[in-house]
């Protein structure tokens, strides 16, 4: 296991370096001057020079890159141009809200997808299965930037059951979590159905049936235990998509997380903030993927010893 961990960590190093380089290049190598973009066309030359110097843009590109890498190692992502606050402090302030929303969205997806997927697998090729598949495809297809406003319209404005926006209590979490989680619910429903169907065809399930075990015990104690492995893996891999999706959901519901921070950074052309948020989301995603792989190897020895393609 130790050699697998070391090997997997080693393959993550070039990816992390690549991500860091790409995020650096995004701001520094694209056509146009970031200072012009930040200050607008009406800025005076002296203001431009001052900002260029403050951002270190007057130094050679390789020096800037080395400085950027050095800062990263020390946990320094620069200072927000608009708020004069370190970007890491802003991220630390906003990350808990995004983590809360993302985990709530995962809970919503699981609560919807597991029963629906299990039901579809147990009643394969019946109208229940077709209905569940259609519902799953609807979940995958509905855009969250439309679902959010429609949920607000029905449950906050018309029925007045839930608040429109903010983060004052659990009630505030319901609509954003559904908005963010419904797409994942669709993907998970399909995965649960196919994974359980495959497991139900295995020999040990036939043995369990022959032993006279009841259907509930067979499904929940025997089949689901194995069917859950790909489902949990998929959930972990979709964690990053939820983090990216939070940009839109947080904007709709004024949820004070990193997604909203990113959009505020974009609107005010605060590039250190944009750079910091994009980098933090990508690196979180890489870390979650790494953790998933390690957990997967831990529960499945054939990967540890045989290698994984």
């Amino acid at each position: 296991m130790r050699s697998f961990i070391l090997r997997r960590l080693a393959t993550s190093v070039p990816v992390v370096l690549g991500v860091v380089t790409l995020v650096f290049a995004l701001i520094h190598l694209v056509p146009g001057d970031p200072v012009d973009a930040m200050l607008g066309e009406s800025a005076l030359p002296a203001q431009r020079e001052e900002l260029r110097h403050a951002l270190g843009l007057d130094r050679p590109i390789l020096v800037q890159y080395a400085h950027f890498l050095g800062g990263l190692v020390r946990g320094d992502l620069g200072t927000s141009f608009r708020r004069a606050t370190p970007v890491t402090a802003l991220l630390a302030q906003r990350y808990p809200a995004t983590a809360q929303l993302t985990l709530a969205a995962m809970a919503v997806a699981t609560l919807v997808a597991l029963p629906l997927g299990v039901l579809a697998a147990l009643r394969a090729r019946t109208w229940i299965d077709h209905g569940s598949s259609a519902a799953a495809l609807f979940g995958v297809s509905v855009p969250n930037f439309w679902l959010g406003p429609m949920l607000i319209l029905v449950f906050a404005i018309r029925l007045d059951w839930l608040p429109v926006s903010g983060r004052d209590g659990l009630a505030n979490l319901v609509l954003p979590a559904i908005t963010l989680g419904l797409g994942l619910a669709g993907i998970l429903t399909r995965m649960t159905r196919s994974s359980l169907l495959e497991t139900l065809g295995e020999d040990y399930i036939r043995t369990a049936k022959a032993k006279g075990l009841g259907p509930a015990v067979i499904v929940w104690k025997h089949a689901m235990r194995n069917a859950l492995i790909p489902i949990v893996t998929l959930m972990a891999l979709q964690f990053g998509a939820l983090l990216a999706g939070s940009v839109i959901t947080e904007t709709i519901f004024s949820w004070p997380g990193v997604g909203k921070l990113l959009l505020e950074g974009i609107r005010t052309r605060d590039y250190p903030v944009v750079q910091g948020v994009v980098l933090s989301i990508a690196l979180t995603y890489v870390a979650v993927n790494l953790l998933t792989d390690l957990l997967y190897a831990w529960v499945n020895p054939s990967i540890r010893f045989g290698g994984r393609s």
């Binding site: 990816v15 690549g18 991500v19 995004l26 983090l243 989301i281 990508a282 890489v286």
Partner: peptide, 24 residues
């Protein structure tokens, strides 16, 4: 494949949002 891994480290439309932010 390493280049592909780097690009896939940006989940969803995050990279498109970042590029959109920079390009306008």
């Amino acid at each position: 494949m390493r280049l592909v891994d780097v690009l896939l480290a940006f989940p969803g439309i995050l990279l498109a949002i970042a590029l959109g932010a920079v390009l306008g």
